[in-house]
Amino acid sequence: MAFRAGIVLFPGTNRERDIAIALAAANGGREPVIIWHKDTTLPPLDLVVLPGGFSHGDYLRCGAMAAQSPVMRAVRDFASAGGHVLGVCNGFQILTEAGLLPGALLRNAGLRFLAQDHHIRVESTDTIYSRGYVQGQSIRVILAHGDGNYAADEETLDRLEGEGRVVFRYSRRDGTVAPDANPNGSARAIAGICSENRRVLGLMPHPEDAVEALIGGEDGKPMFAGLAEALAA
């Protein structure tokens, strides 16, 4: 059984092909549908993905304009009905701006746009996105962002930690979390978090760009294999 995935396209989105390739490869070649930001309804779907890019030119704040798009009302309804939503990079920024995930993504502490490989540690395998990994495993993924510095008040951070909603944390290759392995200054080295019902996940790194050994690694594959297994069941 295949699952039905949809990718939302905003003006300025540029990673939709990457995520489509990763999803199709894990889904028996079935291509995800593309949803335009002006659409007000979603077709029947098992997963909505907000991909990376620079929606609306990052005007005002990254993701701020996209969060107000007509389609986001439908995505919000989909999420509150228990739908699965994955936001990668700009998609994570949009999810926080839309209030679907807590906190915000600030300018990288070093002010530089980061385009590099980095390791993240899998902190929780209790989501469809991370069930393909082993808890504590460090995986190599790709960073491509200027505003990935996760911020939230202490109370929110404590709640996220307490509820096991920090799913990925920046780490060294061996999985240790340390200030020198936190590339953008994120609070508690947070790279990805999930919603209370664990079905909405946002992360800054790009697992969809690590699905092919030829272009530098396959550590992103278990994410798509895992969610395919869960959604097709």
Binding site: L106, R107, A109, G110, L111, A151, G185
Partner: peptide, 12 residues
């Protein structure tokens, strides 16, 4: 930015 939120641009 709220007081207490790191402002790297201001710092630069």
């Amino acid at each position: 930015l709220k007081t207490g939120v790191l402002d790297p641009q201001g710092k630069a």
